[in-house]
Design a protein around this nucleic acid. Structure first.
Length: 275
DNA sequence: AAAGGGTACAACCGCACAACG
DNA sequence: ACGTTGTGCGGTTGTACCCTT
């Protein structure tokens, strides 16, 4: 099926919006709402395509839009969320009231990526294998992080009492080696013994599967694998989705919520960390 | 003051997907 | 099951503005 872009229709205006057009759009939506974006411009008397109207409203004219510079806290939140979610700007925007995905995307490309690249050397040094982060990648940066954090199989394994928080996740692999993975976060402080040990019935046969995202079609989690032999983190595939076992844990719609939900249901936290 | 380069941000484009007939 | 439509999303582009020379 080939569909011509809506804005190719003759007579439809493109480019920057004028204050007059803004006012027409605002007035119309205030009166009638925006049930059908395609029909809206015609009904409102705008020479724009519905897509353009929708974008203008969502990214600029919506009354709950927060204008102005991003605070330090907002920037830190974006960085953290980008680590977990990758370039899923709408998911990140959902965590930042009043900010749009477009705005966050722009801030990332113009400010935060540069700032993080300045810190890249430090982070890469911390990584045991000296692999660097790819800040241009659309994938979450957790796989390389974990790659640096997975202990050597020959390292002494901590006893349960040595696990200081649920940010220490004990995992088993097919060959029975318990490899301890620390997922560090200053914002995650939970009690010891609260995180459940996940046995090999959960993880995949040849590698440890770390879910980062629950598929919206309810088919399972997507994520990445840690190779059982080499301890390398394997980049997630687009269709890397595995079934979640029927262990009673709820399924939520993104990676961060997944971890928090897992922690909380394990009894480790009273409430969600404040984002 | 003018030119050139860099930056920030608004807007567009194309694709994916769900809903519906 | 299939085609069509509407919407949402991420990537990319265009341009106004700012800074440096």
């Amino acid at each position: 099926m080939v569909r011509a872009p809506c804005c190719e229709k003759m007579g439809l205006k493109k480019g920057p919006w004028t204050p007059e057009e803004d006012q027409v759009l605002i007035s119309y939506i205030q009166r009638n709402g925006h049930g059908n974006w395609r029909a809206l411009p015609k009904q409102a008397g705008l020479l724009r395509c519905g897509k353009s109207c929708r974008l203008r409203w969502i990214n600029y004219l919506r009354p709950d839009i927060k204008r102005g510079n991003f605070s330090r806290e907002e920037e830190e939140t974006i960085i953290k969320l980008h680590e977990m979610l990758g370039n899923r700007w709408s998911a990140i925007a959902a965590r930042l009231p009043g900010r749009t995905d477009n705005e966050i995307k722009n801030v990332w490309h113009t400010h935060l990526k540069k700032r993080l690249k300045q810190n890249q050397v430090t982070l890469a040094t911390a990584a045991t294998n000296n692999k660097s982060f790819d800040l241009d990648s659309s994938e979450p940066t957790i796989p390389p992080l974990l790659e640096s954090l997975v202990h050597s199989p020959t390292s002494p394994q901590p006893s349960s009492s040595e696990i200081s928080s649920v940010t220490d996740v004990s995992m088993s692999t097919q060959n029975g080696e318990a490899n301890n993975v620390e997922i560090k976060s200053e914002d995650m402080e939970y009690s010891k013994e609260s995180f459940p040990l996940i046995d090999e019935s959960f993880w995949s046969d040849d590698s440890v599967f770390l879910p980062t995202e629950y598929s919206s079609n309810s088919s399972g989690f997507s994520g990445f694998n840690v190779d059982a032999q080499t301890q390398d983190a394997v980049a997630p595939m687009a269709d890397d989705v595995q079934e979640w076992p029927s262990d009673g844990l709820s399924l939520v719609d993104n990676g961060m919520d997944f971890w928090y939900d897992l922690f909380i249901r394990a009894g480790g936290a009273e409430e969600l960390p404040d984002f």
